[in-house]
């Protein structure tokens, strides 16, 4: 079992024939992801990486039955692409593109919600169900199958956390990168209940960072509804106030959004909070061996 995606998930790629889209779609296919086609306007009818290309998402969905779209279009076109996917009946849009304007994401997410489409990202590494389905840009080889679910705002901390979990002799059910932009799709509070309900997931790793209050909301939900052990790390304990730390949403404004505040809330909710990402693997091993 896993959450959201597995080996049978039919995936299309928006921005299929572009440089980034091509490179990563090829890697996903090599990983075993069931990529059934892609969309690039004015290239409909062609074949790319051995898969059909369509002019519109609606055509692609009709012809292939795809339910998930992986989006690689340039930043200025992300909003448009997400809304197109929503109207075409896609169930989950995984938005990899970095640098989408925040205004566009407000509009696009509202539209997606209206059409019942889930979104992930933007500016995220994607989602991977170990040894089954990779939709995104993560190095697939480090994800061994196991019983740990992972949710992270950061791409490289997803890899770091996963690698440690695997080196401790465990593995991953599904790892989800949610991105660190001010407006994002699925977040902790939608994903935690999915992992709670997934019979194979026995422990959840949650990686957050400074800025916003999603981690505080997650702490409330964990306290009330999550029975599985949760290990958490919050990046940016040493970040200065008022500075954006790489991710557009990673900023401490006034006294809000600090790592200390988030760590305290998670601890109070019974989460095993580690002070360094170097301790994620050990912490997971401890809670799973109990």
């Amino acid at each position: 079992m896993s959450i959201l995606v597995n080996k049978d998930t039919k995936v299309i790629v928006q921005g299929f024939t572009g440089k980034e889209g091509s490179f990563h779609a090829e890697q996903c296919i090599a990983y075993g992801t069931n990529i059934v086609g892609g969309v690039t306007p004015n290239k409909g009818g062609q074949e790319h990486l051995g898969k059909p290309v369509f002019d519109t998402v609606a055509q692609a969905v009709k012809a292939t039955g795809a339910t998930v779209s992986m989006i690689f279009v340039p930043p200025a076109f992300v909003g448009d692409a997400v809304m197109e996917a929503a109207e075409a009946g896609i169930e989950l849009a995984v938005i990899i593109t970095e640098g989408a304007p925040v205004r566009d994401m407000q509009m696009a997410k509202a539209h997606a919600t209206k059409h019942g489409m889930k979104t992930l990202g933007p500016n995220c590494p994607g989602i991977i169900t170990a040894e089954e389905c990779k939709i995104g840009i993560m190095p697939g080889m480090i994800f061994k199958k196991g019983n740990v679910g992972l949710i992270s705002k950061s791409g490289t901390l997803t890899y770091e956390g996963t690698n440690q979990v695997v080196q401790e002799g465990f593995g991953i059910t599904t790892a989800v990168g949610i991105g660190g932009d001010p407006i994002i799709g699925l977040s902790y509070n939608q994903l935690l209940p999915m992992f709670e309900a997934d019979p194979e997931t026995e422990c959840i790793v949650m990686i957050g960072e400074i800025g916003g209050d999603l981690e505080i909301q997650a702490a409330k939900l964990i306290k009330e509804k999550v029975t599985k052990p949760v290990v958490a790390f919050i990046a940016g304990q040493t970040a200065p106030k008022g500075k954006t730390m790489g991710h557009a949403g990673a900023i401490v404004s006034g006294s809000a959004g600090t790592a200390a505040e988030k760590m305290a809330a998670l601890k109070a909710a019974g989460v095993k909070v580690v002070v360094s990402p170097a301790e994620i693997g050990k912490a997971v091993a401890e809670v799973l061996k109990k």
């Binding site: 992270s152 705002k153 950061s154 791409g155 490289t156 901390l157 770091e160 660190g180 990686i207 960072e209 400074i210 790390f233 990046a235 940016g236 304990q237 040493t238 970040a239 730390m245 790489g246 991710h247 990673a250 790592a259 002070v275 360094s276 990402p277 170097a278």
Partner: peptide, 15 residues
Amino acid sequence: NGAGLAMGTMDTINH
């Protein structure tokens, strides 16, 4: 590489 790991590295050094 990566904003999250960059912050996590700073935190680890500090720790």
